[in-house]
Design a protein around this nucleic acid. Sequence first.
DNA 1: AGAATCAACTTGTCTATACAAGATGCTTAA
DNA 2: TTAAGCATCTTGTATAGACAAGTTGATTCT
Lengths: 233, 233
Amino acid sequence: MSKYQQIKAHILEKIEGGHWAEGDAVPSENQLAQHFSVSRMTARRALQELAEQGVLSRTQGAATCVASLKNQSSMLQIRNIADEIRARDHQYRARVIELGSREASTGIARQLKIDVGDRIFYSLICHWQDDIPLQLEQRFINPALAPDYLAQDFTATTPHEYLCTVAPLTEAEHKVEAVLADDLAQQHLHIGADSACLRLHRTTWSREGIVSHALLTHPGDKYQLGGHLTFQP
Amino acid sequence: MSKYQQIKAHILEKIEGGHWAEGDAVPSENQLAQHFSVSRMTARRALQELAEQGVLSRTQGAATCVASLKNQSSMLQIRNIADEIRARDHQYRARVIELGSREASTGIARQLKIDVGDRIFYSLICHWQDDIPLQLEQRFINPALAPDYLAQDFTATTPHEYLCTVAPLTEAEHKVEAVLADDLAQQHLHIGADSACLRLHRTTWSREGIVSHALLTHPGDKYQLGGHLTFQP
DNA sequence: AGAATCAACTTGTCTATACAAGATGCTTAA
DNA sequence: TTAAGCATCTTGTATAGACAAGTTGATTCT
């Protein structure tokens, strides 16, 4: 094990053993360097990497402290539905139900941060796993950032994948909620009005602004979002 | 902007501009150092940080390549319900409905990886935002890893926070699904049988094994899971 | 042709040093 | 007492050099 890894391990032991509590200052770069007989840059690397992992918190000029452990918020992975289905070794297929342009309603205009009445592109696609409709994707696209959107074949490439190529995404925001199936969902996901659905709202940004807003609706009895997180090694 | 940040920006421009495609080798540390008239360590830092961000992929001895862009999966943050409510400047309160021990059913035994019939601890707590019940928390605890669980005051500390102190968590797994309200949810979340609920399953590990399994049920019309992700700066 | 070797290149670790920049507490002057 | 200034600590950036370790391709030998 390399020297900086030994120092990292030493610090983690102290924290996990309770010797260094949350908020306590850990030894400075120079102190660690002297204690382990290494150069400052090597000690620094240990502190740096632990800070990137969220174990420590550093502020220039002041000290390096043990970060608050309870704020280790967990993360949930959101995957591309096509990849997810294929990863499970099932057949993935998409059916394009609608593809066209329309005037932005007030709700959509607010989401895409454009004016009410501006023309936007719209797509309604159902994603299937074998013979089960697993996701209904309603998407509203800013035509300024994806002018050729309507000419694409979305049975071959998902809208998300296409948009990533023409407008590299820089930010994404998600919301997840549980709703009862609306008309569209009942019709295309083959479920009743008394079915719970998992709905994801996804807004994506590129350098030039908001690219699209998507509503992804899953039948609640057939789909789960999953995530796994490993903390300190 | 510091030198290594300039180099990072330069590389990102080349990639986003399409000059360097996925899988292409980017200039070596020495080449970059010469081109920008900096030391190798400075050029190295730029490549290193981009690799950590997942933009580049490096292998010792061989080259540094542009990583596959489409695998940038998004992440959704899962926060502590108490923190979340307090962060919104609302009053947080917890009501302990049940707290005790019982024999593990087959389902719970499988989740906690213990034997059927072993005694486990159990808690049922409702988390309130002001006068609205926002989360019903059913939790099954491995008593070997938290022997004093039943003596805690969960109106002051959430079970999750307490468990983190007695058994530092190393891993967590989440599943999110949409379900219709069951009897418990109807009763304690004050909703009808035809209400959609967002349900989180959370399993947490510490060094010694599985600590607990929790079912967190939210009323679908009052709660959304949210997440925001920023990619390359 | 196939295998072993080697040189050249890459990334990974580490050192010793220098200066910049932010934080903190003490001293001094008003 | 208050405020300004300063010394001294911290972390942040950058340099130039060294050696280790892994990859690749060309050369050489069998």
